[in-house]
Each structure stands twice: as C-alpha cells, then as structure tokens.
Design a protein around this nucleic acid. Structure first.
Length: 272
DNA sequence: AAGATCGCCTGCAGGC
DNA sequence: TGCCTGCAGGCGATCT
C-alpha cells in the first residue's frame, strides 16, 4: 500500500516526465474516483492545462497546474501510475509529447480532487501534520501528540495529523526499530522511547525511499519496476519467522483493526 | 470526546 | 474443480 516512501518514489519518477507538459486529454473511467464531483467536470477542468510541478504532501500526490488549479491524488490501497497499458485503469492522461499516463487502481479506493490554489494548503494542512522527514517533526512535537492518549501508540502513529505519510507497514517497522511495543498506551512512553520512535520513523521512511518503496502485490513505480523495501522488512508480514535481531519468533496481533507484527522480546509490553 | 467499529472495494489464498 | 470465507487496510462515517 502506498505510504510516504511509495508516493515519494512515484513523485520523483513522474516529475521529470510531467513537468511543463500540457494535458491534451483527460479520460476518467470510474465515477468513484472523483465522487461526489462529476467525472466530466473534473476532466474538463484539467484538459488543456499545463502541469507546473509534481509535489507530495503526506500520502497525497499534488499536481500543480499553471492555471492555479491543483489535482490532489490519494492512492489509498492500490492506486498506481504507469506509462504502459494495464488492467484496472481508472483514468488516462494524454500529454502533449504523446505520453500516455494511466492511473490504475484495483480496489478503487483512490481519489482525485481538484482544488483552487488558495484551497490546497488549508486542505492538506487539515489532513496532515508535519512531514516526518521535515524540521517540524521534533521529539517535542511527538511527546505532545502522544501525551494524554491512552490508545495504542501504533494507532496514534497512524494518525496522519501526527506524522503525515506513515501507514501500516512503516509504523510496524518503526516501532521495531525503536524497540517499542505497538500496543503500549501512547501516553505511557517515556521521553527516551519517544526520542527513539522519532528517529526510527525517520530511518524506516528513509530506507523505504532509498529502496523505492515496498512491493507486496500491486505497487509498481511509474517506470514499472518493483520496490525493494519488502526485502528490508524487520517485522511486517513476518509472523512465525525469527526476529532479525534476537531470533525470537515474530508475533502477529491486531491494532485498530490492522495487522500488526512485532518481536515479543525486542518490543516487550510494559517496559522499554 | 477519544476510542472502537463499520463500510467501501477487489483479488487472492486456503479450506473442503 | 469450484464455491465459500477470510483477509488485505486508508480513511470517513458512525456509534459508544
């Protein structure tokens, strides 16, 4: 599932191919993509406009148009972009250099939203907290966000207003790196654990970006290649396998309805 | 009011 | 072989 590293990889591969290109055709094939806005209305708004920049905010991909409009794409679970025709295409962009860019989304959770320039920042700021790789994601910030929260620390970490772009995979990977049990009440972490967690989130995301994301089944980069991060997984999806640090069998549980993997020895419940 | 649960979607794995 | 069930999970809506 596309999280920050996957979306950043997509952004970095799309940017050189899209920047400065005009959209000569915009075909939206699934009304769910732009719901509740009519798909023809969205297509008409974009058609003829030129892409000024391709940016990312949290898990959002942001196509800034020269007109001042912006297209906000959220890939949710299975959204992806590609230059080769494929199955499950939900939208197709035609560029003025002849490029055909398809948006693929098997499970149809992804969304496309067109906003005016002035609406973009307030919208994104309402959904997203600081970029975890940016200067605002400090230990003090994380301490403040975890305090008073009795929910499992993993549930809080998945809140996009706490750390924009962290999803299920990188949350588990970060908690393992920080040696923090995902079920610990967020408010129970001591300052050193929070400091480790901040570092671990950043390290896990950086590794994910370096490896161009993780490919489990659907995710591909726009150039069509698989990510390599799945080879780096320390805990995600590894129940029954030995912990890469201590050899203890990785356990699986559920937190907030999501599959959650951890090492019972490296990430004990109760003490850090 | 924070926290838990549900619904949206589709493909695939596993059981019989 | 083919049907059925469960599972994957981001996020908004809904309930407690």
């Amino acid at each position: 599932m596309p999280e920050l590293p996957e979306v950043e990889t997509i952004r970095s591969q799309l940017a050189p191919r899209l920047t400065g290109r005009a959209l000569v055709s915009v075909e939206i094939l699934d009304p769910r993509l732009t719901r509740p806005i009519d798909l023809f209305e969205v297509a008409e708004e974009l058609e003829g406009d030129t892409i000024a920049a391709v940016e990312r905010r949290g898990k959002y991909l942001v196509l800034r148009m020269e007109s001042g409009l912006a297209l906000l794409v959220h890939l949710r679970m299975t959204g992806s972009f590609g230059f080769e025709p494929t199955s499950h295409e939900r939208a197709v962009l035609g560029l003025d250099d002849g490029t055909r860019l398809a948006y693929r989304d098997v499970r149809r959770f992804g969304t496309w939203l067109v906003l005016e320039n002035t609406e973009v920042e307030p919208y994104l700021a309402g959904k997203n907290g600081p970029e975890p790789l940016g200067p605002r994601f400090t230990t003090d910030w994380l301490v403040a966000r975890l305090s008073g929260r009795r929910a499992p620390v993993k549930a809080v970490l998945l809140d996009q207003r706490v750390a924009a772009g962290v999803g299920n995979i990188y949350a588990d990977e970060a908690l393992w790196r920080a040696r923090v049990n995902p079920l610990m009440p967020a408010e129970s972490l001591d300052p050193d654990e929070v400091r480790r967690l901040r570092r671990a989130v950043r390290a896990a995301l950086r590794t994910g970006i370096e490896r161009q994301g993780s490919t489990l089944s659907d995710y591909r980069t726009p150039e069509g290649s698989r990510g390599g991060m799945q080879e780096e997984f320390k805990v995600y999806g590894r129940d029954g396998l030995p912990c890469r640090h201590c050899g203890t069998t990785i356990a699986k549980t559920r937190v907030g309805g999501r599959g959650t993997w951890y090492c019972p020895r490296c990430q004990p419940h109760g003490a850090g």
